[in-house]
Structure formats: structure tokens, C-alpha cells
């Protein structure tokens, strides 16, 4: 007897007007897993996230969270169901202090189409929310230092932490991260991915990593899907994909230099 996967995407089609960005994609993710979605720029990775998280209404297909059909529902409902997104480019609220950014992550969860009741609910749960905030600060101590700073005045890596922290404030069971490494120095990316690993192992938060940087994605995640031009072309455990010739040449820089097949060296940075 199997439990329904945490996230199940079935034949998802996303269109922007007449243009098809995602042409029938299916994937699944179990609770506590770390899964990557790799592929080149424009492959439809962000469209997939848009469709899952409720920003865009899919033209066809289904999105199920814990077996519940949440296709095309508003983003707030997806958040309440336990899936939050760390968007591409961080997209923090620049004029608000870091702490406000984090608290809004919790506030957003209280929304059911109406602001006054959301505010009252938020105030009612203030105690819980403060504790949650403390937990996030203990997970990412740097944020505590920056709590009063306007989020726009922090570095790229710090903003990424703010965005992750904001997403964590809604107590998600699945965290979807869109282009974690974009515009960040390799060392910063390394720190962040170590943090995400710890988060996944200690807190049990499942990860869906949508990444152009295939090396990072395959290192961090146990399973991966490869998306090209709106369709899934490959799927499987990360170590298998790492050995796959097509993946190597397209995404791991294997075609550019002579890679030592035996030692399995992964040269080069992202594609």
C-alpha cells in the first residue's frame, strides 16, 4: 500500500496565449525527497512552477498535493496546502525590513480572499508566528543580524536567505526553489545548498530544485528530471544522470573537454 506522493504533476500544459511553454509534463515527488528539474534557459521550468503555484492557470493537466487536486487554484491555497516557492531572482520586498519580509511569509498564509479577516487571524496566531520566526532565525542566524535592514540593501546571497526564510515562515512541507544559483558567487551557492541539505534532513522539508546549474542540482538532489522545450526528456536518479552521455555533454560540460570517464571527473561549471 503506497501513500500518495506529496506532489504529483500529471500532463501539465501551460500556455501563454497561443505559445505552448509546457507541453504535457508529469512528475512526482515524495515527502522529504530532494528532486531537481534541470534544463536550459526557456525550457519551461519557470512555467511549470507558475502553473503549480497558481500564478498561471494551466491549460490542461493536474497538480495534486497530498492527493488533493489543486490545479488552477489561487497561490494562497497552494501555500496553505504546504507548498511555497522561492522565486527566481529572489524577489524580496526591497523597501521593507528583513523581519517584515519574513513575517509577510506567515501573513500570506492567513489570506482567504479578504484582508481584514486575514489580519485578525494573523494577530490571533502572533504567538505561534513569533516562535516560527525564532526558528527561522536560528536556522539562518545571519538574518537575525539583518532584521532591521531594508531587504533591498542586502547582498544577493543574503536576499536569497531572506527569500528562503520568507518561504519557510509558512511552514511548508515542500519548498520549490527557482534558480537558486542565479547571480550568486559559487561560495555563497555552496553555503546555501549545504543549508538546504540540512533543512531537508533535519526539518523534513522536501525540495524541488529548478536549476540551470545542473552540477549543483545533481549534487544536491537524489533524483532529477530533464526538461527541454516544454517536454520531459529524461528522468532518473542523479548518479545515473551524471553518467548519461547526453546529459554530460549538454549540461555538465562534458563535450567541451575530454573528460576522464573512469575517474568520473566533473569538470567545468554550469552550462
Amino acid at each position: 500500500m503506497s501513500v500518495a506522493p506529496l506532489l504529483e504533476i500529471d500532463g501539465l500544459v501551460v500556455k501563454y496565449g497561443p505559445a505552448v511553454a509546457l507541453d504535457g509534463v508529469s512528475l512526482s515527488l515524495e515527502a522529504g525527497e530532494r528532486v531537481a528539474l534541470i534544463g536550459p534557459n526557456g525550457a519551461g521550468k519557470t512555467s511549470l512552477l507558475n502553473g503549480v503555484c497558481g500564478l498561471v492557470k494551466p491549460a490542461a493537466g493536474h497538480v495534486l498535493l497530498d492527493g488533493r487536486d489543486l490545479t488552477g487554484r489561487a497561490p494562497g491555497e497552494i501555500v496553505r496546502a504546504g507548498l511555497t516557492q522561492v522565486p527566481e531572482g529572489r524577489q524580496v520586498f526591497p523597501t521593507l525590513p528583513v523581519e517584515a519580509n519574513l513575517l509577510l511569509g506567515a501573513y500570506g498564509r492567513e489570506f482567504r480572499h479578504e484582508l481584514v479577516s486575514a489580519t485578525l487571524r494573523y494577530i490571533g496566531r502572533r504567538g505561534e508566528i513569533s516562535m516560527r520566526l525564532e526558528r527561522v532565525y536560528s536556522l539562518m542566524p545571519k538574518l537575525r543580524e539583518l532584521r532591521e535592514r531594508p531587504a533591498g540593501r542586502t547582498s544577493g546571497g543574503e536576499q536569497q536567505m531572506v527569500a528562503i526564510g520568507r518561504a519557510l515562515m509558512a511552514e511548508p512541507r515542500l519548498l520549490a526553489i527557482d534558480e537558486l544559483s542565479l547571480g550568486l558567487a559559487p561560495l555563497v551557492v555552496q553555503d546555501l545548498s549545504e543549508f538546504l541539505l540540512r533543512l531537508n534532513e533535519e526539518e523534513g522539508v522536501a525540495l524541488l530544485l529548478v536549476e540551470q546549474n545542473a552540477v549543483l542540482a545533481l549534487e544536491l538532489c537524489s533524483r532529477a528530471y530533464v526538461l527541454e522545450a516544454g517536454r520531459l526528456v529524461l528522468a532518473g536518479p542523479s548518479d545515473e544522470l551524471e553518467r548519461n552521455e547526453t546529459v554530460r555533454s549538454a549540461y555538465l560540460g562534458g563535450g567541451l573537454e575530454v573528460a576522464d570517464a573512469e575517474s568520473g571527473t566533473q569538470t567545468g561549471l554550469s552550462s
Partner: peptide, 21 residues
């Protein structure tokens, strides 16, 4: 918090939506 939610929508509608606002 409500005022900050307004500012959030002004700063970045997409991120505000994603957060559930």
C-alpha cells in the same frame, strides 16, 4: 502588517502573490 502587505504588493506583486497574499 496589513500596511506592509500593501507595500509588498507595490514592491513586487508576483512575490506577494506567491507568498499567499
Amino acid at each position: 502588517i496589513a500596511g506592509q502587505a500593501l507595500v509588498a504588493c507595490a514592491d513586487s506583486r508576483r512575490a506577494a502573490e506567491l507568498v499567499g497574499i
